[in-house]
């Protein structure tokens, strides 16, 4: 389906590009938030990524999935913005054995509270860990596909994923503890 729209855009049908905006905006913003940790900055990042993708769409060679090609543009733009912002994202390093709250409490929360808590927990993680978790679980990409999107090695992704899961458990516990105390 993507290929048909790529051809349409290349042939001069600008409006056909709306398909990509509708199709990829939500996940692109989620991925960008993983890096820049702010929804509004992420929105700007994704907007710039769409413009860059439009400019370069004639260079898309159909060798990879359009989504992988586009997410790579999003990530490049997000990391470029992060560097520009020079925002210090403090790495979340909790003791994994620290039992500060019952993690399974999250399952008893209402749907919107769960979503909020998970997004906040993902914001606490370092950019690469949060990114790998979202690509692996949200987009359900394989390790190979994550490697194609990020440009990292498969081993590095496996290690990051393992570390990210552990940190995610710790982040959820920490947030649950905070909400229980308040």
């Amino acid at each position: 389906m993507d290929d048909i729209y790529v051809r349409k855009v290349c042939a001069g049908d600008t409006e056909a590009f709306r398909y990509f905006v509708e199709q990829y905006k939500a996940l692109s913003i989620s991925l960008a938030v993983s890096v820049v940790k702010d929804e509004f900055v992420a929105e700007e990042v994704v907007q710039d990524a769409f413009i860059n993708a439009f400019r370069g769409i004639k260079n898309f060679k159909f060798k990879s999935k359009f989504s992988s090609w586009f997410y790579r543009i999003v990530l490049n733009e997000a990391f470029r913005r992060l560097k520009k912002m020079q925002k210090e994202i403090v790495d979340f390093r909790h003791s994994y054995d620290e039992e500060i709250a019952d993690e399974s409490e999250v399952l008893t929360l209402q749907q919107n509270e769960q979503v909020h808590l998970i997004n906040e927990a993902l914001k606490l993680l370092p950019a690469r860990e949060s990114l790998v978790l979202r690509l692996f679980y949200l987009q359900e990409e394989s390790i190979k596909e994550v490697a194609a999107i990020t440009g990292w090695t498969e081993i590095y992704i496996k290690v990051t994923l393992h570390r990210a899961r552990k940190n995610m458990h710790a982040a959820i516990k920490s947030l649950l503890k905070k909400s229980n105390n308040s």
Binding site: T14, E15, F17, R18, V21, E22, K25, A26, L27, I29, S30, V33, E39, F40, A42, E43, V46, Q47, F50, I51, F54, S104, V106, L107, Q111, Q114, V115, I118, N119, L122, L133, R134, Y137, L138, R165, M168, H169
Partner: peptide
């Protein structure tokens, strides 16, 4: 369970007219 929770973490664009904004710039 963690996978199930992360699947719910899709973030929508904060601006309601995000699509139109992007298309304006594209045009």
């Amino acid at each position: 369970q963690l996978a199930g929770l992360i699947k719910k973490s899709l973030i929508e664009a904060p601006s309601k007219d995000f699509d139109d904004n992007v298309m304006y710039h594209i045009k």
